[in-house]
Simulated assay, not measured.
Amino acid sequence: MKMTLDAWGRSVDGQLIDRDGSAGAQCWDLWADYAERAVGVPIGWTYTVNRPGHPDHFLASSMFLFFPTPRVGDLSQYFVRVGRHEPAQAGDVAVWARSWSYPDTHIAVATGPAVDGMLPCWTQNPGATRHESLTTAGLLGYLRPIALIKPAASLAPKRRKQAQMFMVFYKHGNGPGKPGWLVMGTPRRLVLSSQAAADDIARQLGIGSSFVTNESGWAKFLRAAGPA
C-alpha cells in the first residue's frame, strides 16, 4: 500500500473528490482516488467498463461485475474479488448493484465489517466525502487489495503447530481473479477459496507459516500437494 487507509481517509474527509473533471464529485471519483493514491493502481485502470447494451454499462457496478478487466488494465494485479457473504475488511472496496438505495449503483471504501446490515465506509455522492455506515442491501461484494490480505499463519496457535505444514496463497489460485489458499502437508490436496476459511483451517491445524507465490510457483505446489 502506498498510503494507509487512515491516512487516506483523513486526506479526503469533507472533500469533493473529482478525479476526472467530469460530472462532478461522483462515487467513482472516490474509488479512483483510493485506488491510485492508497493502493497504487494507475488511474487509467480505474475507469468503469464500456459494455454497450449491458444495463451496467459505465456504472460503478461494472468494476465488480466485469472484474478483473476494466477499460485499460488488469485489476487482478492489485485486487481479488470477494463475495458479499464474506465479512468486509478495512480497505475493501465495496460495490453495490442497482437497488432502491442506489438506483445507479454505488462504490465506496469499507473501514470494517458490517454490523446489523450496515457497512462502515468512506463514501461520496450525494454530498462530500464522509465516513458513514451504508446498507448492505444490494451489495455485490468487495474488491480486496492484495496488499491487505493477511497470512493465515498469523492466527495459528503455536501450541498446536504441526511440522511440515504450511499455506501458500496465489491471487488466481481458483481461476482468474479468484484467490486460492493451498494447504501443504495434508493427506490430500486442499485448496481454500476465502480468507475466512484459510484462517479457520490455520487455527484448527496450527499451521505456522504462510507465503505468497506466483503462477509458476502455484503450479509446482499443486503438483507437490498430490491428488485432489
Rank of each mutant, 00 (worst) to 15 (best):
M1D: 06
K2Y: 07
T4E: 10
A7M: 10
V12N: 01
G14T: 11
D18A: 14
Q26T: 14
D29P: 00
A38E: 05
V39N: 02
V41T: 04
W45V: 06
R51C: 01
R51Q: 08
G53P: 07
P55E: 06
D56S: 10
H57M: 05
F58M: 13
A60E: 06
F64N: 00
F64S: 03
P68D: 03
T69H: 15
V72Q: 12
G73I: 04
L75V: 10
L75G: 10
S76W: 03
F79D: 03
R81K: 15
A88I: 06
A90L: 01
A90P: 02
A97Q: 14
T105Q: 04
V109C: 04
V109D: 02
G112R: 00
V115L: 15
D116M: 08
D116K: 12
M118V: 11
C121L: 02
T123A: 14
G127K: 11
S133R: 15
L134Q: 01
T135A: 04
G138Y: 09
G141E: 01
P145S: 06
A147Y: 10
K150Y: 01
P157R: 07
R159I: 10
R159E: 13
R159A: 12
K161P: 00
Q164H: 14
M165E: 09
M165R: 10
M167A: 06
M167G: 07
F169K: 03
F169Q: 01
Y170D: 00
K178R: 13
V183Q: 05
G185M: 12
T186R: 14
S193M: 12
S194T: 15
Q195K: 07
A196H: 07
A197S: 15
D199W: 15
I201A: 09
R203W: 00
Q204Y: 02
T213L: 05
N214T: 14
E215K: 13
S216Q: 12
S216K: 10
G217S: 13
R223N: 07
G226L: 13
P227R: 12
